[in-house]
């Protein structure tokens, strides 16, 4: 089974590279990182390139918007297009288990995303290192790793949507709704919760809401590490105090892993049960 998974993953990666998706995304990430590195210094009245930490903070919000959207579009298009164009029909007529198709696609898409992120942010990182002389790239690297984790979660979610929906259009509609809800709408929900609850109930509620959205998970984890969480209110400070510790960090990682694994198995289950009609 694992051999089949690897073969399908390799094919998926080849298709992603040939379709120039990887190149476009990598270019976009590089462009954004470099633009923010240069603009970051201009905004404080200086010429040159901002360091890695400053660039990472500036990039965070863009990453939180872009990576989930790209991962959703990539995974939904890949699965739904293959179904609608008939390739999946031929693939499933081979002596392979259906779950290997989902796992293989997931691995291939993950590799494509990794190349786009590493290629894009990596090339921008080289320019920052050479032009700014900054060698402390830890914050910047962690941002890339977190972006990848976030991308994996949304690839799993995208595959689940594609495997559960009857058409590409329907899957894309659900995907865009999911992106809008998790990236934009969710924060309004959190603000609403803070108005309704107080004290320890609010802290519990914030903790639960944080775990329930992979975008917020990555945002909070990044802000804690980059020192941007210091401007939060008292309750949020208490929560962040807990998350800063080893147990809190482990909880954040486990929650993100759950966001990667649970939707992936949801996709495997939906794919295994569906009828592939013309």
């Amino acid at each position: 089974m694992f051999r089949h998974t690897i073969i399908i993953a390799r094919r998926e990666l080849t298709e992603a590279v040939r379709s120039r998706w990887v190149l476009l995304c990598g270019g976009l990430f590089a462009l954004l990182a470099l633009a923010l590195a240069f603009v970051g210094m201009r905004s404080v009245g200086l010429n040159g390139v901002a360091g890695f930490s400053r660039t990472a903070i500036a990039l965070l919000n863009l990453v939180l918007y872009l990576v989930p959207l790209l991962a959703l579009l990539l995974s939904i298009s890949s699965m739904a297009a293959e179904r609608e164009e008939g390739a999946l029909e031929v693939l499933l007529a081979q002596p392979i288990a259906r779950r290997t198709v989902v796992f293989g696609k997931w691995m291939g898409l993950a590799a494509a995303l990794a190349i786009a992120l590493c290629g894009g942010f990596g090339s921008a990182g080289l320019v920052i290192a050479v032009a700014g002389g900054d060698t402390s790239a830890g914050d910047y690297l962690l941002l890339v790793v977190r972006s990848f984790g976030l991308g994996l979660a949304f690839i799993s979610l995208g595959l689940w949507l594609a495997c559960s929906s009857s058409s590409r259009l329907r899957a894309l509609t659900w995907g865009l709704l999911l992106w809008f809800s998790s990236v934009l709408l969710y924060d309004l929900l959190v603000v609403g919760a803070t108005a309704l609850f107080g004290g320890s109930a609010l802290m519990t509620m914030l903790g639960l809401l944080l775990m329930a959205n992979p975008v917020d998970l990555v945002r909070v984890a990044a802000l804690i590490q980059l020192g941007g969480a210091d401007s939060f209110g008292l309750t949020a400070q208490a929560l962040i105090g807990f998350l800063r510790g080893l147990r809190g960090s482990a909880l954040l990682v486990l929650a993100l892993l759950a966001w990667i694994i649970v939707p992936l198995f949801g996709a495997v289950r939906a794919f295994g049960r569906r009828d592939f009609t013309a």
Partner: peptide
């Protein structure tokens, strides 16, 4: 052999 025979167009 299905009605639409091509597997992966980019390959």
């Amino acid at each position: 052999l299905p009605q639409r025979a091509v597997l992966y167009g980019n390959l």
